[in-house]
């Protein structure tokens, strides 16, 4: 459906270049951009959500380390996707090896102690807030004018490009751009106070 693959764009190239020059903040943006996709991907392999988060984070850390050698021959997301799959598979292999009686190694213990923030993500309060955010956002989308709702759903759910949406909705590409932006702005007004809690 979407002819534009995520990752083969100038944004990723620019961010990767900045990271390679030592700009860690640029990597922060890459994590923000792809965290949801990578977590979803890892959860196909790892059932436990909190462990999946840990594995996804590990994948990002590995990607950061590996960016030194990344030459951009493939799209960044394709490369990251492979790292995430390998990290998840390696986790499964390690999990099989680990018997319930086995002691936690010093390295593992260090890893667990580092993940205070991870435990925080999985806390019941956070989960409750996330569910609340989801419900409110979906209600807001339901209340949007039809053309705004269609435009943003075609983009976010169907993954259509602006060109494709313009053809589907029989309107100029500028109108598509504007409708998607307006839809986001309406939702953002509701979302902002929720996320700053």
């Amino acid at each position: 459906m979407n002819t534009k693959t995520c990752g083969d764009n100038v944004t990723d190239k620019e961010l990767v270049l900045r990271v390679q020059k030592g700009d860690k903040a640029a990597f922060d943006l890459l994590v923000q951009k792809y965290q949801a996709k990578i977590i979803t991907l890892v959860q196909r392999y790892v059932n436990d959500p909190s462990i999946a988060l840990d594995v996804a984070q590990e994948a990002f850390v590995k990607a950061y380390r590996g960016l030194e050698t990344f030459r951009g021959e493939s799209a960044f997301y394709t490369w990251l996707y492979r790292i995430a799959i390998n990290t998840a598979k390696n986790h499964l292999v390690a999990e099989k090896r680990r018997t319930p009686e086995s002691e936690i190694s010093a390295q593992d213990a260090e890893l667990y102690s580092d993940n205070a923030a991870l435990r925080d993500i999985g806390s019941p309060e956070r989960m409750l807030l996330a569910q609340e955010i989801e419900t409110i956002v979906l209600q807001t989308i339901e209340g949007l004018p039809q053309e705004l709702k269609t435009a943003i759903l075609l983009r976010e759910v169907e993954g259509m490009s602006y060109d494709e949406i313009a053809s589907t909705m029989a309107c100029p590409i500028g109108t598509v751009r504007s409708r998607i932006f307006r839809a986001r702005e309406v939702i953002d007004k509701v979302l902002e106070p929720l996320l700053s809690r």
């Binding site: 922060d28 977590i39 999946a52 989960m127 956002v137 976010e156 996320l195």
Partner: peptide, 26 residues
């Protein structure tokens, strides 16, 4: 986050603490 909610991506993925933790580890 709006995109993630619409695509029904995992709730855990919405937490900004994820990025913070990754950056801490880095």
């Amino acid at each position: 986050v709006i995109g993630s909610i619409l695509r029904k991506e995992p709730i855990e993925a919405l937490d900004p603490a994820f990025t913070e933790t990754v950056m801490e580890r880095i």
